[in-house]
Simulated scan of single mutants.
Amino acid sequence: MLPVAVHPGRPPAVRPGPRRDPAPSRLRYRLNRLWLRPSFRRLVNFGVPMLAGILAVWTLAAELDLKARAVLAYENLRSSLIERPSFLITRIDVPGVTPDLAEAIRVAAFVDLPVSSLEVDVGAVRERVEALSAVERASVRALAGGSLEIRAIERIPVVVWRSPDGVMLLDHAGVRVAEIDSRLRRPDLPLIAGEGADAAVPEALALLQDAQPILDRIRGLVRVGERRWDLVLDRDQAILLPETDPLGALRRVMALDAAEEMLSRDVSVVDFRDPARPALRLNEHAQAELARLRKEMKGEDA
């Protein structure tokens, strides 16, 4: 090895080391590439501070029991609003209906008075009122002055139905309005009977409308086999109508009665179940008289 020359008054020469590679390390390169992504920058710039803030608030709330304080403050505010006299409901008004239905509506509303209007679910009250068979539609609202107003459209009974389960009042659509103990409770309404008669109330009303000339003689309509009607009259007379086009058959009967006074004669049954072959059935007195006349005619022929 050659000796290094050292000059007096000058520092010794330092031999240069290996040169540093200017390229970044693999980890630094990946971090730089990750930082170039906008989503990562948003996460670092906004997500991390937000997460830190949430953790700080959560820790503070846990330390100071802020949740319980907030719930207590909310309950106090709610109680102060509910107990205000301006929101207090002390009565239920049901205008425009009969007294019996009004009382039934108050019971069905199931509102324990006095109560705050903020605690009354008007939608649930309306559903309970509309569940009554005598109510078609209802509206509910809280009014100033401490009143809960329930306006109901009452179903109007138009017929009395003698059903297998009892005597019912039905509206124009065949919906049950109420149950009565006797048909004599509503003598002003026409009577229908038979199983399935409630499903054909509109047709029964149309038949009664076309039978106006003999309306005072009609005792009722009987549904037979859930498919056709028998029109029952006084003097033990009956008009048997067909399953199809009963209105047309009844109009023919009315025309015959107007022309020939057929229903004023000794006829017990007018059978129009087959409109192409209508038939008449005489009552017992007429049958006996007819038999007597036939015997007399046979005796004269002999």
Rank of each mutant, 00 (worst) to 15 (best):
G248W: 05
A255V: 00
V232Q: 09
E154C: 00
G248P: 00
P85I: 00
G196R: 02
M168G: 01
R42C: 02
R292F: 02
I218S: 03
S80F: 08
A259S: 15
L64V: 13
A193V: 06
V94R: 01
D21N: 15
G47D: 05
L72S: 14
E119I: 06
A5D: 05
D274E: 15
R292V: 00
S39W: 14
V232S: 04
P18A: 15
R28G: 12
L240P: 02
R294P: 00
A255Q: 07
L66F: 11
I218N: 01
S116E: 06
Y29H: 10
V57F: 14
L250Q: 01
R37F: 07
R151S: 11
H285G: 05
M297A: 15
Q237A: 05
K67A: 13
S79I: 01
V135K: 02
P202Q: 03
P24F: 08
L36R: 14
L241F: 06
A131E: 12
L64W: 09
L263K: 09
L169H: 11
L241I: 09
Y74I: 07
D245G: 06
V270L: 11
T244Y: 09
L143A: 15
I239C: 04
I89C: 09
E195G: 08
S264L: 09
D274I: 04
L72E: 12
D230V: 13
L132G: 04
G194P: 02
I180G: 10
A255E: 15
V57K: 04
L170A: 10
L256H: 12
E63I: 07
A104K: 13
V270Q: 02
V14L: 12
N45H: 04
S25V: 01
N45L: 15
A206W: 05
V224Y: 02
I105C: 08
R69W: 04
F272A: 10
G123C: 00
A52T: 13
A144G: 12
D65T: 02
A56H: 03
R155W: 09
V267W: 08
M168W: 13
L27P: 00
G196T: 02
P278S: 10
I192E: 08
L118R: 06
E127V: 07
L293K: 14
V253E: 10
A102W: 03
V44M: 15
R151L: 14
R128L: 10
D274R: 13
P157D: 11
L36I: 01
L2S: 13
V270M: 07
D257C: 08
R42D: 10
P202E: 12
D100P: 00
V97W: 00
R277A: 09
R137H: 13
L66E: 06
L36C: 09
Y29I: 03
E154W: 06
V122M: 11
D234Q: 09
L132H: 01
P213Q: 07
P275S: 07
P95K: 00
P85D: 11
V160R: 07
S163V: 00
A102S: 13
E149N: 05
P95G: 04
